[in-house]
Design a protein around this nucleic acid. Structure first.
Lengths: 355, 355
DNA sequence: CTGAAAGCGCTTACAG
DNA sequence: CTGAAAGCGCTTACAG
């Protein structure tokens, strides 16, 4: 005799009453509830999750799908760790657990998701590494499964998502560079199918237009996430007939390689060439000159994800719930890697000291 | 009518036969099995995991617990991603799924584990970030839950674990430095409760003894994982009355700060001071001079974890299964950050060029 | 080789 | 407020 029936025998109550007491249902004598909770505590009772799920149709878990494929991995562990923690903070308030579902690199993402959903392993899903046209979104909508995405597609607007505020970043960064006299600004975007590069590029182009500047697709450079990728960006940029005077990075770690190649070319970042990063990563926090970049609370990103999902999970049918689309703001961290546009002849010594 | 009973009606078979066919049990007419599988495919049948678990007592899932507490997070980079992928590769062969269980930073690790186990969410557990005396291990042994750890405790020997081959690293690194003339070698170990620093230190001390060198506890330095931690290591090391001439790192990213502080002190890594890393991280791969370090296949680490766990899960009682304790070998990647011990007066120009 | 039936441990209308 | 009972969708001895 185990589980609820053990408690029932012990307390001379029916298992129904035990269940109602344990689950905080209304219509239970307070004294009875107290006794049940005390006995559960004393006997170390924990409900069997499988039985609960089978009976109620709810798993009590939210899935967070990540992609282990290195080619599409654009964020290291620490990015997701911060987000997970934020998600948990919010889910815990609703007695929901987070299960991270890592899609193996060799497996098709769609098939993996399909399996998890069909088996009914979770009550809702958080998707990451969203592609420009991501079939998973239509699938989940079709299946009526509550979900929210970390990132947005280009096409589909009718779903809830949370994303970094690329528009805000583009605005602040472009405004800043333009006010420093820059007119030709390069931008880097990721390889692969993930969509945020396109989002960033679009926002960037729009802000250029705001300033009456032309968007030059020649100044868009694809890059990987590593230092060496940054290293190889420099020559194609500065050897152009009409080179840019500044660059916006999509991956901060590329700054290390950019700095190195610039110095090999006898150019100094923050003096001869301006560099602005997108997301303050620990790995470049001690670069000199300090990289002007943007800071975001990963914990907040996680919380927003959970908040966008919860109404779908606990409320009515997903279709009845308002769409929630959130851009998590990013805060400029001005350092010394950007400067007034200047020919190499005119260096302002003040800027070298991080003015 | 859904699930198996739908198939049963469709095929005019009992649900028992459907179940046996689907699960590849013996004693099913091959023709019947073929029909069942075809119908399942056609109707898009996927078994309800909760019902399966409740009936069979098996979840078909393995949990991998990670700690989101930033203080004990000791692997930046994409350490876990690589490991997860390796685990999945092996689990997939046995029709097992991997669920990553992230313990929120504010929650007690033990309580979190207890909850997951009590609810019977997984058939087996992989634990990471093992502490010197980790209560979770005794708990899982007691509970009879199959498990394996990524890392080892100091105390308890009677469980299966997989770890990096710190002994091998210490041996190769010490041998190398000693042959280059070094006699005073520093070592860095992590802050916090995780145990691998102690493992590394012990192996290091033993290899020194092998060479008849004394282990000087003054040359053991605690460090965090970041560049700035490395930066702050340098002064306390080189300002000693009897300073070391080389250091073994526990976190490669600290090398960036070490390089920077050395150069501020007018010392060159790989010339005036030798540095050897532990695990080749992407973030320092383009440091100059190149960091001599060790390479490990994270995929192999994951596979070994799964292999150590599987006999417990599918075989008999955990107690009946042989212990598996694996050190995953690490391969030296010799670069230019270590060199013959030399006073600053005697620099060999060849070494500067990475000889 | 197949079917009928019990049972896994819960939840939840339905009576009382 | 509590109990008796059905049922969630499977698996698995047990008969035949």
């Amino acid at each position: 005799m185990r589980g609820i029936s053990r408690l029932a025998r012990e307390l001379k109550l029916s298992s129904g009453t035990i269940s109602r007491a344990l689950n905080n249902k209304s219509g239970v004598n307070p004294e009875t509830r107290r006794k049940v909770l005390a006995a559960a505590e004393r006997l170390g009772y924990e409900p069997n999750q499988a039985a609960r799920t089978l009976a109620s149709g709810r798993t009590g878990s939210i899935g967070f799908m990540i992609d282990l494929d290195r080619d599409s991995v654009s964020n290291g562990d620490s990015f997701f760790m911060g987000v997970f923690d934020g998600v948990q903070t919010e889910l815990a308030l609703h007695d929901l657990d987070l299960l991270v579902l890592p899609c193996p690199s060799r497996q098709d993402k769609f098939a993996y998701l399909d399996k998890m959903i069909s088996r009914q392993q979770v009550d809702g899903m958080i998707l990451s590494e969203i592609e420009s046209d991501d079939a998973r979104i239509d699938y989940l909508k079709e299946a009526g499964v509550p979900f929210v995405t970390l990132g947005r597609t280009t096409s589909n607007q009718h779903y809830s998502w949370v994303d970094l505020d690329f528009e805000g970043v583009a605005q602040v960064a472009v405004d800043r560079l333009v006010s420093l006299g820059h007119r030709r600004i390069a931008i880097t975007v990721p390889f692969g199918k993930v969509n945020f590069g396109r989002v960033f590029k679009t926002a960037f182009a729009e802000r250029l237009a705001f300033h009456g500047l032309e968007f030059d697709s020649q100044l868009v450079f694809q890059t990987g996430i590593g230092e060496e990728d940054g290293y190889h960006l420099v020559d194609p940029m500065i050897d152009r007939p009409d080179p840019p005077t500044a660059v916006l990075l999509i991956f901060d770690a590329t700054a290390i390689g950019i700095y190195r190649r610039l110095s090999e070319r006898d150019l100094a970042p923050g003096t001869d060439f301006s560099v602005i990063g997108l997301r303050d990563e620990a790995s470049v926090r001690y670069l000199r000159p300090g990289l002007t970049s943007f800071d975001v609370s990963l914990h907040d990103v996680g919380r927003e994800l959970a908040r966008a999902l919860l109404p779908q999970v606990s409320g009515g049918a997903p279709a009845m719930v308002d769409l929630i689309q959130v851009k998590v703001p990013m805060e400029l961290k001005a350092r010394q890697s950007d400067c007034p546009v200047a020919s190499r002849a005119i260096r302002d010594p003040l800027l070298l000291n991080g003015g």
